[in-house]
């Protein structure tokens, strides 16, 4: 493997020569050349930037979306068979931050993620990603937006007819013209990052639920996305692996990736999330930092934030 690999897709250049600080709780991350994850055109870490969208130095895109706003859901409403799942939901996610969506089962959290990636279209309202209105895009335009996003499904949704490694390599094979050995190398590194370095040649059916989830996360990270949408990453994982995944998400966030996490795991949300929001009966009933939600007087929010052991 050469020190430097040049990606053909989108003019993105990958530099494997940089050596960031190793993660404290996830040693396998260190085995991955961390620079491989980093796009040179990616924004600097969130901590270095001014995040408030209403400040005068924030530019705006043609759609009216502040340039630092990676995702915006504007008054999104969605119903299935007469049942309203999302009711006038508005969410803003700033670039390079982690946004955690909390809520009881069946409150529309996964539906919200599917709106962001364009798998579902809202009945009313609109969804903006990097200024592009995903809810009205189709075909190649929608595909171009999706190439910049990674999505971990709640069920992992691995392609069960190909190996775990080929699942991770799949987006690279589809969207780059890199040589086979480089794609395999990158897929192996993505798997190593989630602790599955020995499972490249296994079929998805040979993995446990937690391992499938991690493989799904590796696939979601395959194209080094600007935005990572993660649906219940710690479901089915032991506490140690769950903490390792949290650290991986934190590392990605520090490298400039915008992350939206749907979770029931409050400690994980506190650890990873810059901002938290709680969905209940299709509406956002609380939004802010973990401290803000701790202070909420809504009984459900208080009950949720105190359920530290939930996962």
């Amino acid at each position: 493997m050469t020190d430097r690999a040049h990606g053909a897709h989108g003019g993105v250049e990958y530099d494997v020569s940089t050596s960031p600080r190793p993660p404290a709780l996830f040693p396998s991350l260190w085995r991955v050349s961390p620079g491989l994850w980093r796009r040179r055109d990616k924004a600097p870490p969130a901590t270095d930037r001014t995040l408030a969208p209403d400040e005068s130095n924030v530019g705006r895109t043609s759609s009216g979306l502040p340039s630092e706003m990676a995702i915006r859901l504007e008054q999104v409403t969605k119903s299935f068979a007469g049942r309203t799942v999302l009711d006038n939901v508005t969410i803003d996610v700033r670039s390079g931050t982690a946004f955690c969506l909390l809520g009881r089962s069946g409150t529309g959290k996964s539906v919200t993620l599917k709106h962001i990636v364009g798998l579902l279209k809202p009945d009313a309202g609109r969804v903006l990603v990097h200024g592009a209105e995903v809810s009205s895009l189709t075909g190649r335009d929608l595909a171009n937006v999706r190439k910049r996003m990674g999505f971990l499904f709640q069920s992992a949704a691995l392609f069960d007819s190909i190996t775990v490694g080929e699942n991770v390599a799949f987006p690279l094979r589809r969207h780059t013209d890199w040589p086979d050995h480089l794609i395999r190398e990158i897929a192996a590194r993505r798997l190593a990052a989630v602790g599955l370095e020995r499972d490249y040649h296994k079929m998805p059916s040979e993995l446990s639920g937690g391992m499938r989830k991690r493989a799904g996360l590796a696939r979601a990270m395959a194209l080094d996305p600007d935005i990572l949408l993660v649906d219940e990453p710690s479901a089915g994982l032991d506490p140690i692996t769950s903490a390792e995944i949290d650290d991986l998400l934190l590392t990605l966030k520090q490298e400039g990736t915008t992350i939206v996490v749907v979770t029931h795991n409050i400690p994980s949300a506190r650890h990873v999330g810059d901002e938290l929001a709680m969905l209940h009966e299709g509406r956002i009933i609380a939004q802010g930092t973990a401290v803000d939600l701790d202070r909420s007087e809504h009984p459900l929010v208080r009950a949720f934030m105190r359920s530290e052991g939930a996962g």
């Binding site: 798998l119 595909a143 999706r146 499904f153 949704a157 392609f159 696939r219």
Partner: peptide, 21 residues
């Protein structure tokens, strides 16, 4: 059966999510 199984296990959605028609 194959496509039906892919549909109910969200593999078809996963294909769309990785920008494949």
């Amino acid at each position: 059966a194959e496509l039906g199984a892919m549909k109910v296990t969200e593999q078809i959605d996963a294909l769309e999510a990785v920008a494949v028609d």
